[in-house]
Computed example of a mutant assay.
Amino acid sequence: MIRTENLCKRYGKFEAVHDLNLDVRPGTVFGFIGENGAGKTTTLSILATLMLPTSGRAFVGTAEVTSDPAMVRRLIGYMPDVFGVYDDLTVREYLGFYGTAYGVANTLLEPRTQELLHMVSLEDRSDAYVNALSRGMQQRLGLARCLMHDPPVLILDEPASGLDPRSRIEMREIIKGLRERGKTVLISSHILPELADMCDEIGIIKSGQLVACASVEVVTARANGQRQMCLEVLGEGQLLAHFVRRHEWVTDILSSDDCKVELLFAGGDQEQVEFVRELLQAGYHLKSFHEVGGSLEDLFLHLTKDEERVDQQTAASKQML
């Protein structure tokens, strides 16, 4: 439903987006994840026809964003990370205004407004002025505005930004409901753990380039290729970390202190048994050895750390030439 082909956006010598290839399937929620400045908003602005790409192409359905922007705008509901509200309009008037701007028939304006106010839990604030709403209420109202013309695709740029925990949960549940209605949702965020149970697929972007793109499970397996394990010992954690650092099945030491070592382990179940046997034979006093469930945030940090290492190696190679 959303597709980009070698999409690039340059500002002079700075490349904000580099050869980006996305493919968001119809009826799915796609999480577009990255740090501030990674290129998320630039990509979403191009998809929303607010910005022209330097090269490459982008599609919503069969409509290409540069050659058929009018069709793209009919297909999408776009919610920017910061959007303005009109101080002298009530919630109902605000939605009615945008419904008219979107070309919704007059006979449908009121029932559509009622339906959406119910969906975002703002029925009791329909006569309140928009500027009197809390940040969370304004975000939910902004989402309702995007849905006034019932688009099949939603492009949401940091919809949970600045929200308190309760409001974030409410926003997440609304987006899950939209998926159940068959909407295709592209949502950007840097609040990584909150996307894990909401998205069907994720794309992790770093410095304008995709680091990984697939289902959460596939990306985790592809990126890590190992398990995150925790070793608990009796007061010899630092010695143990030094001992296992060069072991063939240990790919990285994540943290260590006197009582605990967390590491990335590349072996399977049988290798774990042999690994523990080696440690016991070496005289270490193990209390436990267990797998730690890595979060989406752990994955992002691991991937971007690898990317930074590649950047550093590339820079060092250029200096040597």
Rank of each mutant, 00 (worst) to 15 (best):
D127L: 12
L109R: 11
P111Q: 09
L108Y: 08
L109H: 07
Y102M: 04
A132L: 10
Q114P: 11
V104E: 04
R125A: 10
V120C: 02
D124T: 13
L109A: 05
G136S: 02
L133W: 01
L116E: 06
Q114R: 14
D127Y: 11
R112H: 08
S126T: 13
M119G: 05
M119Q: 11
L109F: 07
T107F: 11
T113D: 08
G103T: 09
P111M: 07
L108H: 12
Y102E: 02
Q114T: 15
L133G: 07
Y129E: 10
D127E: 15
E115D: 14
H118Y: 13
V120S: 00
L108D: 15
A132M: 11
V104Y: 03
L117S: 02
H118N: 14
H118W: 10
M137F: 09
Y129G: 09
M137L: 07
S126R: 14
Y129W: 14
D124G: 01
A128L: 09
R135I: 00
E110R: 14
V120G: 05
A132E: 14
G103A: 06
S126V: 11
T113G: 02
E123P: 01
H118P: 06
S134G: 01
L116S: 05
L117C: 00
S134P: 06
E123H: 07
R112S: 10
G136K: 03
R125E: 06
T113N: 08
S126G: 05
L109K: 09
E115N: 09
T107S: 14
R125D: 07
V120Q: 00
T107Y: 12
L122M: 02
R125S: 09
G136R: 03
S121A: 15
Y129C: 10
V104R: 02
G136M: 05
M137A: 02
P111R: 05
S121Q: 15
L117E: 04
A105I: 02
V130H: 06
D124N: 12
G136D: 08
G136P: 02
L133T: 00
L108W: 09
A132T: 15
T113Q: 09
L133D: 06
Y102W: 03
G136Y: 07
H118M: 13
P111C: 09
D127T: 14
M119S: 05
M119I: 04
V130T: 12
Q114F: 12
G103E: 04
E115C: 01
S121D: 15
G103S: 00
E115Q: 14
L122R: 04
D127M: 11
L108R: 13
V130I: 06
V120E: 02
N106R: 13
E123I: 01
L108P: 08
Y102T: 04
M137S: 01
L108K: 13
E123N: 03
A128G: 01
Y129Q: 12
A132K: 15
N106Q: 13
R112V: 07
T113K: 04
R125V: 00
L116Q: 01
S126H: 12
A128P: 06
V130A: 08
G136I: 03
T113A: 10
A132N: 13
D124Y: 04
Q114G: 13
M137K: 00
V104I: 06
Y102F: 11
L122E: 00
P111S: 08
N131T: 07
R112K: 12
N131G: 01
Y129L: 15
L117P: 02
E110Q: 14
V120I: 10
L122H: 03
T107P: 11
